[in-house]
Design a protein around this nucleic acid. Structure first.
Length: 348
DNA sequence: AAGTCGGGGAT
DNA sequence: ATCCCAGACTT
């Protein structure tokens, strides 16, 4: 009875009893539902995904259905989840599945890796959780659990990740139950072996945990290096035509909030746009509204200020829409907040 | 190896 | 405030 065998046995037994009921955890896993869930779950907590999952699948129940959809409809269904490139990648992946794989999600790591937005983690998740193949997966949870389990106080570096992937591969092969073991590792990281204040007394692996033996579980893994957030200043222009429709436009297809709709916003990194700058940009005399807020993302601190003008002759790429139409477009949470404060959209 | 890409929960 | 989250991709 070696140590790895004790680990895999205890973990799979725990998972079979303690696993949460989640929309994508059906008895027989559906490949498309699983792929959608994995895209949504990238860098996103389970609770955030649950509310978006079924509505998205109702709109796009198959790869072909998503492949046929417009980019606007896809982004609208994704709105609020963040990391919108995932939605565009999933859309492109669906097209590829329809065109190159006969409408079925590929069933090998190599084929899965050809899909845009599918990396080593997602490919391994489909192979192990859906097809019960002993492919390793390493996400943030697995990384933390395995480093603590082996008591490895290693730096945040690629060499550490290579070690963790190797360890995950050895364990999933040993387990004999790739799905329950891999998903169990993630579930343990989400529920018990949490970043701070892990619930070691409730952990099925406490007897095998070297970090717990040494009392270093709170110090492992070492914090990731994170760059300082850059500031951004946005002047958002609220302009209505004579029928009360609002001027909006679609953002470029790269960068922040790519492809999402917005009230036209002048963005600068150096300083808040002045009245002269906003006026020159929109081609009319602009005046500030008493509407300011700060929106924070992982890498940005965005200072929004609302402005208005009679018209915007210099903004040729816009389009006028009614309040009702706005509600159906793909709009970031930042712009939704702006439009609520400007009383274009109703409160909450 | 570092930077970019959202938004919100936990502490 | 800070850290993190069922990561992937670009530079």
């Amino acid at each position: 009875m070696n140590r790895d065998h004790s680990i895999t046995t205890a973990l799979t037994a725990w998972f079979r009893v303690k696993a949460r009921v989640l929309p994508w955890r059906t008895i027989e896993r559906d490949p498309w539902r699983s792929l959608v869930s994995e895209f949504m779950l990238q860098q996103t907590q389970v609770d955030r995904v649950i509310e978006k999952f079924e509505p998205f699948l109702s709109l796009f129940p198959t790869p072909e259905a998503l492949a046929r959809a417009s980019q606007d409809d896809v982004l609208a269904a994704w709105a609020g989840l963040g990391y919108y490139r995932r939605a565009r990648n999933l859309h492109a992946a669906a097209t590829s599945i329809a065109d190159r794989f006969g409408g079925s999600v590929p069933t090998s790591v190599d084929d899965l890796l050809t899909l845009p937005g599918v990396g080593r983690y997602t490919a391994g998740a489909i192979m192990s959780l859906v097809h019960h193949e002993p492919e390793p997966i390493v996400d943030g949870n697995v990384r933390r659990v395995l480093l603590r389990l082996d008591g490895e106080d290693l730096p945040d570096a690629p060499a550490t990740d290579r070690r963790v992937w190797s360890r995950a591969g050895a364990l999933v092969s040993e387990s004999g139950h790739p799905a329950a073991f891999n998903e169990g590792l993630m579930e343990l990281g989400a529920l018990i072996c949490t970043p701070r204040s892990p619930k070691c007394p409730e952990c099925p692996l406490v007897a095998m945990c070297r970090a717990h033996d040494a009392g270093t579980q709170e110090d492992i893994p070492r914090p990731k290096k994170r760059p300082n957030r850059k500031e951004l200043f946005g002047a958002a222009l609220i302009v209505r035509d004579d029928t009360g429709r609002l001027l909006i436009r679609r953002r470029p297809d790269v960068g922040l909030w790519a492809g999402m709709w917005e009230a036209p916003t002048l963005e600068q990194e150096s300083h808040p746009p002045s009245a002269e700058e906003v006026s020159a940009w929109c081609g009319a005399a602009a005046t500030p509204l008493s509407l300011r807020f700060i929106h924070q993302t992982t890498h940005r601190i965005v200072h929004f200020e609302g402005w208005t003008a009679e018209s915007a002759p210099a903004l040729a790429d816009g389009r006028a829409v009614s309040g009702e139409e706005i509600g159906r477009l793909g709009i970031s949470n930042a712009q939704r907040r702006l439009l609520r404060l400007a009383e274009v959209l109703p409160e909450a």
